[in-house]
Simulated scan of single mutants.
Amino acid sequence: MIANAKPPTEIRRLRALHPEMRERDFARIHGISEAELVAAEVGRSAIRLRPDVEVLLNGLRAAGEVMALTRNESAVHEKIGPYEKVVIGPMASMVLGEQIDLRIFPSKWAFGFAVEKAGEEGAVRRSLQFFDAQGQAVHKVHARPATNLEAWSVLVTSLRHAEQADSIEIAPAAPVALPGEAADVATLREHWRALTDTHQFFGMLKKLNLPRLAAVEMVGEDLAWQLDAKAVEEMFASVAGTDLPIMAFVGNHGCIQIHAGPITNIKPMGPWLNVMDETFHLHLRLDHIASVWAVRKPTSDGHVTSVEVYDGNRELIIQFFGKRQEGSDERAGWRTAVERLPLHSQSNAA
């Protein structure tokens, strides 16, 4: 473990000088993690919580309408609704509601806090915030006007940590290393073409010792082809305001959050491409996009097409699919929309 970069008193002093700055931006500028920033307010506007996913998910069911937020460095995914159809598992837990759809990996959750801040016109903004061992946010839950605050308070009490110090110790990031020799193209294509379900894809990559983007780059253009960087904007333009339901996956190593349904209200703002629909908000940093790929995976019901967006560190930012029912082929409208997206310039030259 490593000590805090700054003592809590110094963090609070600096924060008082920049109260309007977004938490993530403030933490980055001052060389601390976001979790350390929140921890510095324990005993003031924050309560430290146990990162107990089972207690959290079961407790949130009684809270009614809330806003669930999952993000990575380049995309923010927000869904408004109740936590429903909770499934607790030993390695992963799920929320399978019509609005809030999550895949949670509890082993990555290290710190939790309940935060209350003054909002506009005397209102109180309440949130539950959870972080990994490096202090990076994995998932947040924000109260809404319709939230059952009595159930919210009961949940906070049940999750309250015995230790309420205003500092935490964060761990350095573990080095990522793939064991063994990576598979060759022929082996990758053999395994890829043998897929019968999209959920087998991660296991295939692990078995073949291949990072995701490396596999996508090498498998061949019949199964994955590179798109122009503006393909994401064009995809949004082609599906927005139609009845075509899409799926948008945004995640980090502790949580993946999914939207399934049509999208309507697209609002570009600076480097951000935003979706501002009634129960779904998405904020995507277009200037972080290094490559975009159309990816085709076989299933027992026909192939499934996705659009995958990667950053400069070769990490997956966001993934899009057409919404489909298990046992059915994907929607022709989605497949056509993807196949019409502009190719990367190198592909055009080939």
Rank of each mutant, 00 (worst) to 15 (best):
His18Glu: 15
His18Gly: 02
Arg44Ser: 09
Ile47Gln: 12
Met21Thr: 13
Ser33Lys: 01
Glu23Tyr: 04
Leu17Ile: 04
Arg22Met: 11
Arg22Gln: 14
Ala46Val: 08
Glu36Thr: 01
Ala27Lys: 00
Phe26Val: 08
His18Asp: 10
Ala40Asp: 07
Ser45Asn: 14
Phe26Tyr: 14
Ala27Cys: 08
Phe26Ile: 09
Met21Ser: 04
Glu34Met: 10
Glu20Gly: 11
Met21Tyr: 01
Arg22Asn: 09
Ile29Phe: 12
Arg24Ala: 11
Ala35Val: 09
Val38Leu: 14
Pro19Ala: 11
His18Cys: 04
Ala27His: 00
Ile47Ser: 11
Arg28Asp: 09
Arg22Pro: 03
Glu41Gly: 06
Glu23Ser: 13
Ala27Val: 03
Ile32Arg: 00
Glu23Cys: 07
Val38Ser: 08
His18Val: 06
Pro19Ser: 11
His18Asn: 12
Ser45Gly: 15
Ala27Pro: 07
His18Pro: 00
Ala39Phe: 03
Ile47Gly: 01
Ala40Trp: 02
Ala46Gln: 02
Ser45Cys: 13
Ser33Thr: 10
Ile29Met: 12
Ala27Gly: 06
Glu34Cys: 05
Ser45Met: 08
Ala39Thr: 07
Ile47Thr: 15
Ile47Lys: 07
Ala35Leu: 12
Glu41Leu: 04
Glu34Gly: 03
Glu41Thr: 05
Pro19Val: 12
Glu23Gly: 10
Met21Ala: 12
Arg22Phe: 08
Ala46Thr: 04
Arg22Val: 07
Arg24Glu: 11
Ser33Leu: 05
Ile47Ala: 09
Glu23Asn: 10
Ala39Gly: 08
Glu20Trp: 12
Ile29Thr: 15
Leu37Thr: 01
Leu37Met: 14
Ala35Arg: 04
Glu36Arg: 02
Arg24Trp: 02
Glu20Tyr: 14
Leu17Asp: 13
Asp25Lys: 10
Leu37Cys: 05
Asp25Gly: 05
Val38Gly: 09
Val42Cys: 09
Ala40Asn: 04
His18Phe: 10
Glu34Lys: 05
Arg28Gly: 06
Ser45Val: 08
Phe26Ser: 03
His30Ala: 00
Glu34Thr: 08
Ile32Ala: 03
Ala39Tyr: 01
Val42Thr: 12
Glu36Ile: 02
Arg22Gly: 09
